[in-house]
Design a protein around this nucleic acid. Structure first.
Length: 875
RNA sequence: GGGCGAUUAGCUCAGUUGGUUAGAGCUCCUGACUUACAUUCAGGCGGCCGAGGGUUCGAGUCCUUCAUCGCCCACCA
């Protein structure tokens, strides 16, 4: 067997295995009828930039489960890819252009798109490269992009299907408009932030009596330029007589009428509302109800247009200032209250969103949502942690139509053409040559593109080449689980469920795991602008990919608070694994390849520490497996960490230090190491792969090895507990040795002091174990005795040492405590039996409650019996 | 305005269906250069489990009220 280098050089190891896995297609997957499929689709990172810590966490989680399932014998597919991220990517390229002093209009649509594709190529590749460096075991040959050719087919097909069903429609209404990005946004893309603004109270004079006025309140005074009515509640006594009265709109001098509408809340503001149907969703509705004029007073970039009279061309906020100033001068401003309310901001550039009247494409969501609600209600799709179900449901049940058209260039062009001659609207997945109605060839494609999420929601099946039918699609769809951040439940998760059911007739995945947000040590979100972002690649080069992965997962219960030092835990652990392996390789020379841990664990002649570590090992395999299955990754890691470091290294390897000539010891150490590498592998793929390749030279990589076998839990647990007392002795001996500075080679005399029957019988029954223990621990036993605290202390002074084995407990106190417990339990027992004897209770309570109470009574009675035995043993 | 989560050692967090004396890591302190590892080893200090009330023989765990922090949703101008 080869030896490990003295230094653990993660840089070259990371690189070596990245390359190896890729060159050997270790993770390629194909439909295999002999195996069960396990599929994950990656949440495709945006091609806007480089990977951040959130990605590192997200992909590590996916990699753990996929590597685990692969070792468990599933045909695993982890589908990689990237997202074109419409607005976001267009924005970064526009910024790039701006540095050259150009706008996208300057270069033109085609040239601009070319720039975007260049960008995509560079950053898409970078991201894939970074995912590989993280150790992600994706099937890289299948890497997809949300705008590659086949994918466009899927998008067009979906659009047309929905259009034909009447679920995609065009409509003119108030949408969220970003004046900076010059595009419509969906409701989800408007981020509402609590803002401290102002509520302006303005006088609107009557036409017939300009000295009198009605007072309205507004947060956006500039919208008054588009006012076409004043509304009051029809039941508001203050205003009843005024309905129908004419008003002259200040500054604009337009004539308005006071109308009555139930929507107006008499309690808010003055109870009178200025109505601006083109700039407010509620006013829009009022406008429709009362057949008002819709006056748009703004350019798409947020400047006032010619409708604004002398405010023409002013920016909306400039106009606001000026209008307030002029109103003041005209003595029409009553007062300004401070007012905090939620204001929508663009989720890509944080510009204040303008409610804006515009013609857009929408998806009718209600009918699509129903089966998606059912899928979660019926338990076909489960959220982990479960509480997210509520969030999902709340959105689904209050779902609104989805605005899907964007006035940008980067994205899937809407497959709609307009006939210039007869105004026919043509939906087609191919470019149509002529109008089917009038045969005109003057066709113009809709200039808009689709919301980026309109392609993302097809990801689980579009990546498998839908709408084409093929074997892979049938085999790998539906996928198994989805790992993502809660921020995109609505954007992505919910819509994928809708699309999966609608277009594939089946849910897209059965489990959704929502992980926490990565924050800095102070709890702030990591972001480039705050300058608190840690770069995963930097961590990888400083601590290693395994360290990055391990530390991230260790902290991944809820939100993660990450500082650089946290990665030391992972680095140290990887180093520990390396050095433990070194030690074992240096000492294990006589290795039996068929050595069976299961058999050895029940072999009575084997020394106690060895039997114990084997039992502990089997326990750990089970704990780790269960934790992974239940999506409790940090828990799995704690089990691994504790077993490997505390039990195996610090305890077992220390104890057997001078036992290496024993071949059983050698084999046990090697076998436990090998199998530990296996269950550590999903978490730390690089170091385990490297050590495995040295121990098992010539064998297949650990990535494709089988997951270690488990023993029946109950039996193993029994073995463990029966040995625990004895193991405590070993620990005590070691402690005494170190405290009393006794040379490890020197035999020490000790007395085993026992108090309970259980322990002494254990010692008697296991004299062979004691002997084995003596052999290992260089312990010689001179006498065994039962003792009280007092004579134990007396003994201490004369003898070299004693092994405190529960003997140094104050017997009197122990008795008292036990007695108190007995009394308590007896009380419980009597109340319980009273209850069970009460006919009312037995006949009225549900049967399972009665059964439960009976079971409780039984255990309590058993407890009492045991406690009484303890008392008698103390006497 | 509605919903969700958090509150346990100085810090970061575990704590499974209520059940003996509430755990770990880091920090701090004490000791060990024992050649696999100082990215180490052995030990120690440190907790009215956010506050009040309730259910129970028994509550960190269940119910209720409150406080503080965080997140999400929401078209009262």
């Amino acid at each position: 067997m080869k030896e490990l280098s003295k230094r653990f050089d993660f840089i070259s190891i990371d690189e070596k295995w990245c390359k190896y896995w890729e060159e050997n297609d270790t993770f390629s997957a194909k439909a295999n009828p002999d195996k069960e499929p396990y599929t994950i689709v990656i949440p495709p990172p945006n091609v806007t930039g480089i990977l951040h810590m959130g990605h590192a966490l997200n992909n590590t989680l996916q990699d753990i489960i996929i590597r685990y399932k692969r070792m468990k014998g599933f045909e695993t597919l982890w589908m990689p890819g990237t997202d074109h991220a419409g607005i976001a990517t267009q924005n970064v390229v526009e910024k790039q252009l701006a540095k050259e002093g150009k706008s996208r209009q300057d270069v033109g649509r085609d040239a601009f798109l070319e720039r975007l594709w260049e960008w995509k190529k560079e950053y898409g590749d970078t991201i894939i490269h970074q995912l590989k460096k993280l150790g992600s075991s994706c099937d890289w040959n299948r890497t997809r992009f949300t705008m590659d050719e086949g994918y466009s087919e899927a998008v067009k097909t979906v659009f047309i299907k929905l259009y034909e069903k009447g679920l995609v429609y065009q409509g003119e209404r108030i949408i969220n408009w970003c004046p900076r990005c010059h595009t419509a946004l969906s409701d989800e893309e408007a981020e509402h932030q609590e803002t401290h603004g102002h509520l302006y109270h303005i006088k609107y004079p009557y036409k017939d009596n300009p000295k009198e006025h009605i007072i309205v309140a507004t947060t956006r005074p500039e919208t008054m330029l588009g006012d076409t009515a004043i509304a009051v509640n029809p039941n508001d006594e203050r205003y009843k007589g005024l309905i129908g009265k004419k008003i002259i709109l200040p500054l604009i001098e337009r004539e308005l009428e006071i109308i009555a509408d139930e929507f107006v809340d008499p309690e808010f503001g003055t109870g009178a509302v200025k109505v601006t149907p083109a700039h407010d969703p509620n006013d829009f509705e009022i406008g429709k109800r009362h057949d008002l004029e819709f006056i748009n007073v703004m350019h798409p970039d947020g400047r006032i247009n010619e409708q604004g009279g002398k405010f023409n061309e002013l920016d909306r906020f400039e106009a606001r200032k000026l209008i307030v100033k002029e109103l003041k001068e005209l003595d029409l401003l009553v007062r300004i209250d401070t007012h905090s309310h939620a204001v929508g901001h663009c989720y890509r550039c944080s510009t204040v969103i303008e409610p804006y009247l515009s013609k857009q494409w929408f998806v009718k969501m209600k009918p699509l949502a129903e089966p998606a609600i059912e899928a979660v209600n019926s338990g076909k799709i489960k959220f982990h942690p479960q509480r997210w179900t509520k969030v999902y449901m709340n959105w689904m049940e209050n779902i609104r139509d989805w605005c899907i058209s964007r006035q940008i260039w980067w994205g899937h062009r809407i497959p709609i053409w307009y006939c210039q001659d007869c105004n026919e609207i043509i939906a087609s997945s191919q470019d149509p040559k002529k109008c089917p109605k009038c045969s005109s060839t003057k066709l113009r494609q809709d200039p808009d593109v689709l919301d980026t999420w309109f392609s993302s929601w097809l990801w689980p099946f579009a990546t498998l080449d839908w709408p084409q039918e093929n074997e892979d699609l049938k085999y790998f769809y539906p996928t198994s689980s989805l790992f993502t951040a809660p921020e995109i439940i609505f954007f992505w998760v919910a819509r994928m469920i809708i699309a999966g059911i609608e277009f594939m007739g089946d849910i897209p995945f059965s489990d959704v795991y929502l992980h926490g947000t990565v924050r800095d040590a102070k709890g702030r979100k990591m972001s480039k602008s705050l300058g608190n972002a840690l770069d995963p690649l930097e961590i990888i080069s400083e601590y290693g990919a395994d360290a990055l992965r391990f530390s991230l997962i260790m902290n991944s219960g809820q939100d993660l608070f990450i500082s650089k030092e946290k990665f030391e835990i992972g680095r140290n652990f990887a180093n520990k694994i390396w050095n433990a392996s070194r030690l074992i390789l240096m000492n294990a020379k006589d290795i039996d390849p068929d050595f069976d841990l299961g058999k050895t664990s029940v072999c009575e002649t084997v020394a106690l520490p060895t039997r114990w570590i084997i039992a502990k090992y089997f326990e750990t395999v089970l704990l780790v497996s269960n934790a992974i299955e239940n999506y409790k990754y940090s828990e799995a890691e704690s089990h691994i960490y504790e077993f490997f470091w505390n039990n195996f290294c610090d305890w077992y390897l220390e104890i057997i230090k001078d036992q290496w000539q024993d071949t059983t010891v050698q084999n046990v150490a090697v076998k436990i190491l090998e199998n530990s590498l296996k269950f550590i592998h999903p978490f730390m793929p690089f170091v385990t792969e490297e050590i495995w390749s040295i121990i098992k030279e010539g064998e297949a990589p650990i990535s494709v090895q089988n997951w270690p076998e488990t023993l029946e839990n109950a039996d193993n647990a029994k073995t463990l507990s029966s040995m625990q007392t004895l193991v405590d002795i070993v620990i005590s001996i070691r402690n005494i040795r170190s405290q009393w500075k006794i040379n490890p080679k020197e035999k020490i005399e000790c007395i085993l002091v026992t108090t309970s029957d259980e322990t002494s019988s254990l010692l008697n029954d296991n004299s062979s174990i004691i002997k084995a223990l003596a052999k290992v621990g260089t312990l010689s036993i001179t006498q065994e005795l039962e003792s009280t605290k007092n004579n134990a202390t007396a003994v201490v002074e004369n003898i070299k040492c004693i092994v405190p084995l529960g003997a140094l407990i104050d017997i009197e106190q122990e008795k008292k405590k036990t007695q108190a417990q007995i009394e308590q339990q007896q009380k419980a027992s009597s109340t319980l039996s009273n209850r069970l004897n009460n006919e009312k209770f037995v006949s009225n309570a549900p049967t399972e409650v009665v059964e439960k109470e009976k079971a409780r009574l039984e255990t309590i009675d058993l407890n009492i019996k045991e406690l009484k035995e303890v008392i008698s043993s103390l006497e």
